[in-house]
C-alpha cells in the first residue's frame, strides 16, 4: 500500500503522458493532435508540482505559525510554462487554420500526398 501511495502520482503522470503521446501519433485530425499535445504538456506540469509537494506542508504563502511549506520553485516554473503553453498552442492552431485554407482538409492522410498542390 505504501509503495502505491509513494508512486501513485508519478504513475498517473506516466499514464497521462502516454495517453497524450498516443493521441499525437495515432490521431488523424490535427486539432485532436493539438489536444493530445496539451494532455502531454499538462502531465509534465503534474510531475513537477507532485515533486514540489511536501506532506503536511501548505501553500508557499507566509502564514504565522506555519513552518512547513511546499516547494515554491516548481510552481514558478510551471506557472509561466502554462501561459507559454497556451501561446504556442495558439500558434499551432493558426497553422492548422492555414493548412485548412491551403489544402481544404485537416486530416493528415488527406493532405500528405498533396504537397505539390500549392
Amino acid at each position: 500500500m505504501n509503495l502505491i501511495l509513494d508512486y501513485y502520482n508519478y504513475w498517473i503522470v506516466v499514464f497521462l503522458m502516454m495517453t497524450g503521446f498516443y493521441i499525437v501519433i495515432s490521431a488523424n485530425n490535427l486539432v485532436k493532435k493539438i489536444v493530445g499535445l496539451n494532455i502531454f504538456q499538462t502531465s509534465v506540469f503534474m510531475l513537477y508540482i507532485s515533486m514540489g509537494k511536501v506532506t503536511g506542508g501548505t501553500a508557499p504563502i507566509v502564514v504565522e505559525g506555519v513552518t512547513q511549506y511546499s516547494n515554491p520553485l516548481p510552481h514558478v516554473l510551471i506557472l509561466t510554462a502554462i501561459v507559454v503553453g497556451v501561446a504556442t498552442t495558439a500558434v499551432g492552431l493558426s497553422l492548422i487554420v492555414r493548412i485548412k485554407r491551403a489544402y481544404g482538409t485537416v486530416e493528415e492522410n488527406e493532405f500528405e500526398n498533396k504537397d505539390d498542390a500549392i
Binding site: 501553500a59 508557499p60 511546499s70 510552481h75 510551471i78
Partner: peptide
C-alpha cells in the same frame, strides 16, 4: 498539491 498560483493559471 499546494500550488495555488499554478491552479489559478
Amino acid at each position: 498539491l499546494d500550488a495555488v498560483d499554478v491552479a489559478f493559471t
